[in-house]
């Protein structure tokens, strides 16, 4: 299987009052195309730090990230921004839609970044919005006028508009209730089934079941990897396998 990301000896440290905190320690991993990769771990284990280091949003202290065959670790901030617009999509826990933009514009603002034709991008944005169950009547509304679950699905549409090589989702259901959270997971699963590669950070076992490959982070290291196979609703055997893996990891 073709990998999208490969890390070599990835380290990340923070200085806190002069004391170095090593959040990631010599992480070597690979993220594969079309996978729905889940990064799990306890709170403070370094999951989000790893996600943002992989995506080029944050810089590692040491080590290398090779993304689609390109080393991104030494790129300048602006080059990283250009890289992200071409290859990455992001779904945040706090959603982070632009309050002053309508639903449609929130999707277009990412889509138009690559100088594509306005009509094409608009058509695509509308199509994706429909796919995430955002009705046309909501397209002109502002983020403060829609629910959290709807906003997060708009966030997913925004992440997908440029057909990124990889979508990074940082606890996308963390700020939602279970019903709306499920809708968001359904949307992500649907896109993954259509071939979209996704890396998702979560500490929720229900969310983790959507992935086919689980990376467990413990004390800044990859403590274990579990291949679950493709998501099948209500597959108890698969659930059992995940539970056992997590149990082994000390979850």
């Amino acid at each position: 299987m073709k990998n999208i990301i490969e890390t070599r000896k990835l380290c990340k440290s923070f200085s806190n009052g002069g004391i170095q905190q090593h959040v990631l320690k010599n992480v070597d991993l690979e993220i594969y195309e079309k996978d729905f990769t889940i990064i799990m771990g306890a709170s403070g284990a370094g999951k989000s730090t790893l996600l943002y280091a992989l995506s080029g949003m944050d810089r590692p202290t040491l080590g290398e990230v090779v993304f689609c065959g390109e080393t991104i670790t030494n790129k300048s901030a602006d080059d990283l921004a250009r890289f992200r617009r071409d290859h990455c999509g992001f779904v945040f826990q706090q959603i982070y839609l632009v309050d002053s933009m309508s639903v449609l514009d929130n999707v277009l603002v990412a889509g138009l970044l690559n100088n594509k034709k306005l009509s094409e991008v608009t058509a695509k944005a509308k199509e994706i919005l429909k796919q995430v169950d955002i009705e046309e009547s909501m397209w002109d509304k502002f983020p403060t006028q829609i629910s959290g679950g709807e906003a997060q699905r708009v966030g997913i549409a925004r992440a997908l508009i440029n057909t990124p090589a990889l979508v990074f989702a940082d606890e996308p259901t963390g700020a939602l209730n279970s019903k709306t959270g499920r809708d968001v997971l359904d949307a992500l699963t649907r896109f993954n089934e259509m071939g979209q590669s996704i890396v998702m950070v979560t500490h929720d076992i229900v969310s983790a079941r959507r992935g086919n490959r689980i990376l467990y982070v413990k004390d800044g290291e990859i403590a274990g990897i579990c291949d679950l196979g493709r998501y099948v609703p209500n597959d108890t055997e698969r659930h059992q396998k995940l539970n056992e893996f997590l149990g082994k990891m000390g979850w």
Binding site: M101, L104, D105, L108, V109, N115, L118, D140, F142, T144
Partner: peptide, 26 residues
């Protein structure tokens, strides 16, 4: 604010200018 009924005066889907200018107008 729980409700905001602002008007979208510069919809990107209809903006005749480039993205930067449209966002500036926004």
């Amino acid at each position: 604010e729980s409700h905001n009924f602002r008007k979208n005066l510069v919809p990107l889907s209809k903006a005749p200018f480039g993205l930067n200018i449209s966002l500036s107008l926004k």
